[in-house]
């Protein structure tokens, strides 16, 4: 493991601590670039173990209304890829440990230029990437650049990823595996914990990578339930909604951090009293 492998380091620390991690999603530049920087910089202290940062896109085809609106707010506030990377750089000036994974759609990356993007993202301190509309079958055009710059291409597995397809998804997966708990878009429905647990078990049998589970986690109790069965719980729409519902609040970042702290308490307390570990 290289010194710069923040994702592996973080998951190793979590394993040693005997707990799951909290992965928080917010969109870069939502609702403004300044507020967004404030929000992101306070996430680790509030209890986020990994930060997923959305790269806004006009046409997010796998996202529900909350994250669609966040992207449009960010674009209206003038967010560009250059500014998203600048935000990461500014965050990195104060935190060299918390992994940052950029999440979004392929087109803005292609427009930036995949090779230049890989270089600039790595320089800014990005650790990994989730590109929702880039299946393994199409990745060879970009993946070599990402690998050359040490960026982890995080793969998504879903309830529709059957046993035949799973090896394709896991082959070349890096950093962690993101299990999308529902067949659906972000922020709409939740899955039964039993089905999530068996999916995690199934994926674990085929990979040594940590497994983060997201989509449909609304609150601390939901996050705790996931934390009992997976290596990390991902919360996105629920955090983004805190932003959307309190756009005019003077202490908006503090309110977001307050909600993240609640989620973190759920995740950190989840396995106490559980057998094993």
């Amino acid at each position: 493991m290289s010194a710069r492998d923040r994702i592996a380091t973080r998951f190793a620390e979590l394993r040693d601590a005997g707990r799951a991690g909290l992965v928080t999603f917010v969109t870069a530049g939502d609702p403004t670039l300044d507020l967004s920087l404030n929000i992101v910089c306070g996430l680790p202290a509030a209890g986020a173990d990994v930060i997923e940062l959305g790269m806004p896109f006009t046409d997010p085809m796998a996202d529900g209304p909350a994250i669609q609106a966040a992207g449009l707010r960010a674009l209206a506030a003038g967010t560009t890829m250059v500014k998203t990377l600048a935000l990461v750089r500014a965050f990195r000036a104060g935190d060299n440990a918390t992994p940052i994974v950029l999440m979004g759609y392929l087109n803005p990356v292609l427009a930036y230029g995949s090779e230049r993007f890989a270089q600039d993202a790595a320089d800014a301190g990005v650790d990994g990437l989730i590109l929702v509309d880039l299946p393994p079958e199409e990745e060879e055009e970009l993946a070599p650049y990402f690998r050359a710059h040490g960026l982890k291409l995080v793969r998504l597995a879903t309830p529709t990823t059957d046993a035949v397809r799973l090896p394709t998804v896991l082959g070349g997966a890096d950093g962690f595996v993101y299990y999308v708990a529902i067949a659906g878009i972000t922020g709409t429905k939740s899955a039964a914990i039993g089905s999530i647990e068996s999916a995690v078990t199934r994926i674990k049998a085929s990979t040594d990578l940590p497994i983060a589970v997201g989509f449909g986690i609304r609150d601390a109790a939901g996050a705790a339930a996931i934390a009992r069965v997976a290596d990390a719980a991902v919360v996105g729409s629920a955090i983004v909604e805190v932003i959307a519902n309190q756009l005019d609040a003077e202490d908006l970042p503090a309110r977001v951090h307050g909600f993240v702290a609640e989620l973190a308490r759920g995740v950190r307390g989840a396995r106490i009293g559980q057998r094993g570990e």
Binding site: M61, L134, L156, P159, T161, R165
Partner: peptide
């Protein structure tokens, strides 16, 4: 090509 979210991939295949 086929640039879709993983949820749709098996279905499209």
């Amino acid at each position: 090509g086929r640039y879709v979210a993983e949820t749709l991939m098996p279905l499209i295949l």
